[in-house]
Amino acid sequence: MSKQQGNLVITGIIKIAGYSSIVFVTLILIFLLREGLPALGSVPISQLFSTIWYPIQGYFGILPLILGTLLVTLVAILIALPFGVCTAVYLSEIAPKWVKAVLKPVIEILAGIPSVVLGFIGILVFVPFIRTFFNLPTGLTGLTGAILLALIAIPTVVSIAEDALNTVPDSYRQAALALGVTRWQTIWGVTLPAAKTGVLTAVMLGVGRALGETMAVMMVTGNAPVMPTRLNSILMPLRTMTATIASEMGEVATGSTHYQVLFFIGIVLFLLSLAINVAASWVSMRQRQRSERILS
């Protein structure tokens, strides 16, 4: 094989690899649809979006699962947001260099802790705590799951929000300071607003992380597929879409209605995460260009 041909082969391989992610997204969608769409034939739509999930009796209402996911995610992000953004502000605007150098790896540690480990700690530490603190019959509640999800979302929020704050040009800060505005006012009045799309992206991706999280929530939310209709539902057991798939897929017969519906839930999750990520990337669409022009 000549050198030229070798080059062509390598370039070809690289190009194919470059397009592989499109192939995989398409494959994932195809297989989810292939296994999950038949659910629409097996279960009438009205039943699918009803309020009772009790597969053994043929009730396949996924509404409680969707609402369970949304509620836990919402509470999680309400917890993660202040902690995450405050920590990002501290790291980017206030902390001395060495403190930053120490704290950033700590946040990365949190990002690295497997969710099953958080779930385990959740069972042994948070569950008893929530039960006694709120005086509940069980500590396996939506709130317990939300706390774990917040821990999972915080590193995402911190790192993306911090990146956003770092990209605010120093001239903004200096201009504000030169006008006699204090550093504190500069942070909240100038820097953070200038970074707001970045912070918004951080929150959206944090939501995405929380929404798709499986093991930790499954281990601590009690997995009761009830409609979270009241305000205090968060203090009761509930069940998310991810947990439903994880806990039931192992026991269903391939191709059964139950199997199809679990895949259908997968489709819903896929579309939700697609929407969030596309929206987040649309919000943060910054054109990336090579930092320098060709040498001149």
């Binding site: 997204v25 292939r34 991706l205 897929m249 997968g266 995460s273 697609l274 987040a280």
Partner: peptide, 23 residues
């Protein structure tokens, strides 16, 4: 391609499980 990568990174892990099961 970039959109696909972003999308891949956002897909919930349990959905990967479903995909792996199916494919």
């Amino acid at each position: 391609i970039r959109l696909a990568i972003i999308n891949l990174s956002g897909i919930p892990s349990v959905v990967y499980g479903l995909f792996g099961l199916g494919l």
